[in-house]
Design a protein around this nucleic acid. Structure first.
Ligand SMILES: [Mn+2]
Ligand SMILES: [Mn+2]
Ligand SMILES: [Zn+2]
Ligand SMILES: [Zn+2]
Lengths: 167, 167
DNA sequence: AGGAAATTGAAATTCATTTTCAATTATTTT
DNA sequence: AAAATAATTGAAAATGAATTTCAATTTCCT
C-alpha cells in the first residue's frame, strides 16, 4: 500500500507504538507480556509481508533457537486479536498474517506464477458490494476479494514460454 | 441463480445431457466410464448445492453402500475437470463443488450464522476488477469475491438476541 | 519473596485432503 | 469370446497445516 501523502506523521505508528498497543491489549485481557511475545511481535512488525506462522518461525529461530513454533503461532493469533494484524487465506490455503492499522482496508492481486501479492483499494467496488448486500437484505461483516492471474513480469515470461514456478 | 428468460430451452442442458458431456470428456481423455462414476455424477447433478465430497458421499451411501468416499472425491475432481462443476472454498476451508454450465459466472453472499449461500452477479464489479488488474499490468485468470455477514433471517434473530449456529 | 495464574514448547491430535496398492473392472486386441 | 492391456476402486495409510495437551517454567500481583 503506497500513500503519497506524508502530511500527517502521527498517522503512521512506529513499531514501538504498535508493540505498546499489543502490551495494552494483553494487560486489558488479563494476559501476560513475555519475552517471547515481544520478540515475535517485533519480528512480525518488521517484516511487512503476508507471512505464515511457519515462515515467521523460521526467520525468528535463526536468532532465537529457543522460541517454539507453537508460540509463534499463538502470538500471531493474539496480534490479530489485538487489531495489529489480519489473517488472510489465499488460494494456497495457508493462513497468512499482515500488519495492519485499524482503518486500513485493501484487497489483493495474486500472481499464479511467482506468488507476488499486490494490494489495491477501490471505493467504487466497496460501495457496489454494499449495494448488492442490501438488495439481498444481507448485513455484511466482512468480504474477500482476490484477483488471480499473472503479474507484469510473469506475463512477459509466459509470452516467451518461460513460465516456471519461482516460489 | 434465477433467470426469468425461458425463451431458449436448449440453453439449459438436462442431467442426461450433462452426463453425456462427462462421458465424452472421459473418452476423450482415455479414462473409463464406470457404474460408480455414473451414479456419483447423477447424484451430484441432482443436488444443486455447494456440496462437499463428504456430504455427497453420505447422500450416496444411503442407497449405494459399496461406493467409497475416495471414489466420490475423485469423481468430483473429474466432474470439475470436465467443466460441469467448479471447486469453491469458502471461509470454512472445505472444498465444495457446484454444478455449473460453461458460461455462467457468479459470486457469493455467505451467512455467518446459518451458512446459507446466496449467489449474485454484477457486471459493473467485474468490469472494475478488470480495470484494476489492467492498472497493475496484471493478467487476470480468475477471481474470488465473497461477502460474509448475516442473511435477512439471521439478522432478525441477531436483533432479538437469538443468534445461534444452525449449521 | 510467595503464590496464583498464565505461558511455553515438545509432542500428540485433529481433520480434510491426497496417495498407495492389491483386487477388480472396463476397454481393446487377437 | 477370451485374453491382454490399462484404468478404477476402495480401504487404509500418509500428508500437512492447524490446534490441543500437559508438565515445566515464567510472569504478575500482593
Ligand atoms: Mn495485504
Ligand atoms: Mn455458487
Ligand atoms: Zn508473477
Ligand atoms: Zn443466515
Amino acid at each position: 500500500m503506497i500513500h503519497s501523502d506524508e502530511s500527517k506523521p502521527a498517522a503512521v505508528p512506529t513499531i514501538a507504538e504498535k508493540k505498546e498497543q499489543l502490551r495494552k491489549f494483553l494487560r486489558q485481557k488479563g494476559f501476560k507480556s513475555t519475552r517471547q511475545r515481544d520478540i515475535i511481535a517485533g519480528e512480525f512488525l518488521k517484516c511487512s509481508e503476508h507471512v505464515t506462522a511457519e515462515e515467521l518461525y523460521k526467520k525468528i529461530s535463526n536468532k532465537h533457537k529457543n522460541i517454539g513454533f507453537t508460540t509463534v503461532y499463538r502470538t500471531l493469533k493474539l496480534i490479530a486479536a489485538s487489531g495489529l494484524a489480519t489473517e488472510r487465506v489465499f488460494a494456497d490455503n495457508l493462513t497468512r498474517y499482515e500488519s495492519l492499522s485499524a482503518e486500513d482496508h485493501h484487497d489483493h492481486l495474486i500472481c499464479l506464477n511467482c506468488g507476488s501479492i499486490t494490494e489495491f483499494e477501490n471505493p467504487k467496488i466497496e460501495k457496489l458490494q454494499e449495494r448488492i448486500a442490501n438488495e439481498f437484505g444481507f448485513n455484511t461483516v466482512t468480504h474477500k476479494m482476490e484477483l488471480y492471474g499473472y503479474c507484469r513480469m510473469c506475463k512477459k515470461d509466459v509470452l516467451r514460454g518461460e513460465r516456471f514456478d519461482r516460489r
